[in-house]
């Protein structure tokens, strides 16, 4: 349980701003010396307001962007040092669910094509033929609460919650160990949010996944996560066990955030 799966080691990201015609440029420091570690099998929450660097950190973990300095280690491997082929292979094990389920599914592809695409790309690792891929797609759909009748539909025929389930199915398709959840419920209705969160809890139990859960909603993080970190203007201001941070916040920012939470009784996880 305590084995470290993902380690972010002193990561900084500086955007060089636009260099204008007269050579003036202003830099944006999106991440300042961020360090944190996620253990195997846990849910780690990253909480911060808009523009605090959450998304930049996500993109750095997935190597969609290179950090300016620092390292991202997955099971001890420095992702920045891997070759393109190695990274491609590793991508099967780190998957992401994006915030906006309306934008993260290709409107021209059927659910079947969307869910089987990762298996097609990683067919050498997974060893699934065409037919097996389709079978697994049906399994994955039922795992996320959709049915085989949805297989040949297109994204526009689904509601937000259903689309997010398709996104989760796609993320699970290559058999990942780590799931990065980039505000997976913030674009959804409150009632649907709860369903998707419960689904994520179930999946974690069933599949033994590790979650890196990004959110601006402390209530959601408290419900789902074991540990959390607070990020403010690109810096980690506090991190620790969920219970201790909520009960005894150490920093002013944490106190302010927790104090600003609406008083909603969170039902205990079933």
């Amino acid at each position: 349980m305590s084995e470290i799966m993902l380690e972010i080691d002193d990561v900084s990201k500086i955007y060089a701003g636009k260099r204008g015609m007269f050579g003036r440029s202003h830099m944006v420091e999106a991440l300042k010396h961020v360090s944190l570690s996620v253990r195997r099998g846990e849910s780690f929450g990253l909480v911060g307001e808009s523009g605090s660097g959450k998304t930049t950190l996500t993109r750095s973990i997935l190597q969609l962007e290179r950090p300016t300095s620092g390292r991202v280690l997955f099971e001890g491997m420095d992702l920045g040092q891997l070759s393109t082929a190695e990274m491609r292979w590793l991508r099967a094990r780190i998957q992401i669910v994006f915030q906006d389920p309306y934008a993260s599914l290709n409107p021209r592809m059927s659910v079947h094509d969307i869910v089987t695409e990762p298996m097609l790309i990683h067919r050498e690792t997974l060893g699934l033929n065409r037919r097996q891929r389709t079978e697994r797609a049906v399994e994955l759909l039922s795992l996320v609460g959709l049915g085989a009748q949805h297989l040949y539909r297109h994204p526009h025929e689904f509601s937000g919650g259903q689309r997010q389930r398709i996104c989760i199915a796609r993320a699970l398709a290559p058999g990942p160990d780590l799931l990065v959840l980039d505000e997976p419920t913030s674009a959804l209705d409150v009632s649907v949010q709860a369903q998707v969160l419960n689904l994520l809890c179930e999946l974690q139990d069933k599949l033994g996944l590790t979650y890196f859960f990004i959110s601006h909603d402390l209530g959601v993080v408290r419900y789902l996560c074991d540990r959390l970190a607070l990020i403010y203007r690109g810096e980690i201001v506090e991190q620790g066990d969920c219970a201790s941070v909520f009960d005894a916040p150490e920093t002013e920012y944490a106190r302010a955030l927790i104090g600003a939470m609406p008083e909603v009784k969170v039902p205990p996880a079933a």
Partner: peptide, 25 residues
């Protein structure tokens, strides 16, 4: 678009991203 980032995240090659995800749209 998010779905292009998603394609990158699942390890799709540049040509696949261009031909399957970008051009059809």
């Amino acid at each position: 678009e998010s779905y292009v980032n998603a394609a990158r995240a699942i390890g799709a090659s540049p040509s696949r991203i261009l031909l399957r995800h970008i051009l059809p749209n």
